[in-house]
Write a protein that binds this DNA or RNA. Sequence first.
DNA 1: TGAAATGAGGTTAGCGCTAACGTCGTTGTG
DNA 2: CACAACGACGTTAGCGCTAACCTCATTTCA
Lengths: 355, 355
Amino acid sequence: MPSQSNNNVAAKRELRVDRREVGARVSMVDVARLAGVSHMTVSRVINNHAAVREETRRRVLAAIDRLGYQRNTAARALATRRSGIIGVLTIETALYGPASTLYAVENAARQEGFAITITSIKTVDPATAKEGLRLLTAQGVEGIVVIAPSSQIGEALSSIRGRAAIVTAGDALAGDVPAVYVDQAGGARLATTHLLEQGAATVWHVAGPRDWLHAQARIRGWRAALKAAGRRPPPLLYGDWTPASGYHAGLTLSEKITEGDAVFVANDQMALGMLRAFHERRIRVPRDVLVVGFDDVPEAAYFTPPLSSIRQDFAAVGRNAIQLLLEEINGGHPQRASVVPAELVVRRSSVRPKG
Amino acid sequence: MPSQSNNNVAAKRELRVDRREVGARVSMVDVARLAGVSHMTVSRVINNHAAVREETRRRVLAAIDRLGYQRNTAARALATRRSGIIGVLTIETALYGPASTLYAVENAARQEGFAITITSIKTVDPATAKEGLRLLTAQGVEGIVVIAPSSQIGEALSSIRGRAAIVTAGDALAGDVPAVYVDQAGGARLATTHLLEQGAATVWHVAGPRDWLHAQARIRGWRAALKAAGRRPPPLLYGDWTPASGYHAGLTLSEKITEGDAVFVANDQMALGMLRAFHERRIRVPRDVLVVGFDDVPEAAYFTPPLSSIRQDFAAVGRNAIQLLLEEINGGHPQRASVVPAELVVRRSSVRPKG
DNA sequence: TGAAATGAGGTTAGCGCTAACGTCGTTGTG
DNA sequence: CACAACGACGTTAGCGCTAACCTCATTTCA
């Protein structure tokens, strides 16, 4: 609490231009007094309501500037019943995808005049997610963007429907929650088809964790592409997105693989681990085996060899997520889903060398 | 705005248990009515004030639970003049360090009962930083954590002193702003000394951008270690943290370097680019040249070869930053700086092979 | 036994803003 | 020239909380 005693409210209210230096808050009535108008006129100016003469507006703006006035958001939120805050529920990870999405969401929200509050969760189980959502609604958020794509979360989301608008950024979720996501299955198809076109006999797949919808969709796309080419999918391997798990998958694959095969890895970090395992086992990429990753992290072009990958436009995801959320906040019924196309970036790791 | 007309306040106030389903907010008086007490008693229960009988407390808690009541933070903030919000100003990057620090700060703040709002900035110039800080103070934050270590920002920070408590997480800044950071110079000394101990004739350094304090401190540590060993520092190379710049530095170095030299690179991503450049130029790491990076990103162990690096405890940085900030918020004069030690992680890239 | 002290609550007055309505001159219109 | 319409504000009543005081029964102790 501010330690100053409050027993002399009148004195505190007294107009002092240098108050800014002391750090005490200036209120609307202070501005009004300096501009010689009522506080309501100040409010009108700030909110761009019509019916304010140009000269009055200028006087008010000058007073605002002079006093360094900033509107009290708590009071505004209380009066309007709108907080102007959008909550983000995100998994606690420095992974490129979620982190990029977070910033895109923040940017888009800011542009729309909303502030962002975040709550991170370490795991994606329903109880943790529910607790995170509770923290957000407790802050009076008008809407929530969920960046934690996991099928386990769907249930938790339904627990707060009605309290706040909600949208998922990352992947489609079960239920009726609007979602914005990059076409994961499409990206996987792009990767797999590309590998087949490069003459791969078989395309193996190292998937992400089973409860991630991303992982599931990439599996679907991979299967679909193989099927369309009349190939039978080889056995599936699973990782947990980390380089370590990709490394282990690489060791396993190095026993099973035949020259001319290809591997589609569900993210770049696992692909990195796999490249390392292949290197140790003297399996040359791309001569012996072709590899494509997913995410196109900034480092991918500098792996050994440079890694082909599927690029996702996270900025577009963030923008669209906020747009859908705003529609929902404003009482509309937004479209169920907004799908951003994926893009294949070809580098050395997936191009069969001549000869 | 909610579209419902407000002309019948009495009707709206009427107690309806199923209101939760409709999504309408339950207020304290609703809880009070259900529990048969005054709203003030409800407030006392929620805030753990004494002077409430155990049985009354239970009745109130039951009513809160039944109605799914959540306190209106805007009203509370208005009445207490405290928002319970801590702002984070961060550069917009998925870089491992800042992202990890962000989550650590969020966790620590949550544990202390504070919510987190973030504003990201694309560049670290003073104008942009100032605008970001303005957005945060406009939200009535009680304190601000700055995760954007750049000497350019110091000036901007002073513009809001007095409006909110402030602390930087990442590196010491000019001026009197308390700071929490990992000992960058110490880490650089660790790396350089280690390389010298491995028998390196010279230790080159690829630094980060000149206006990053991190980069400057790492240069200082590198110089100090060389000096302590009686060596003269070779010419400095600069990068911009990206793998691409590390790659270019690697190409340049490949012309200048002599066998038995070593390179200390100011972060792991640039080191990755450098490894790639050395690979292309047939310079073998660690046989021909030793390399140490900085940050110890999760991928470092999977580079080719696995990269030695300097690990930073970002979680500790986040925790300490919030602790300092809270001291400042509560009117104390916190210590100027809290330094977290760095740690050397040795992997293949910096160990001279036998023979 | 009476006065003071101590619970265990209730009442009231804001916090700083906006919505809704009220007021007062000025302008247009028949 | 009277009256409506309108522009440009001002007044008032909350939004849902908490701080500070108030009340009233009980207990405590001289």
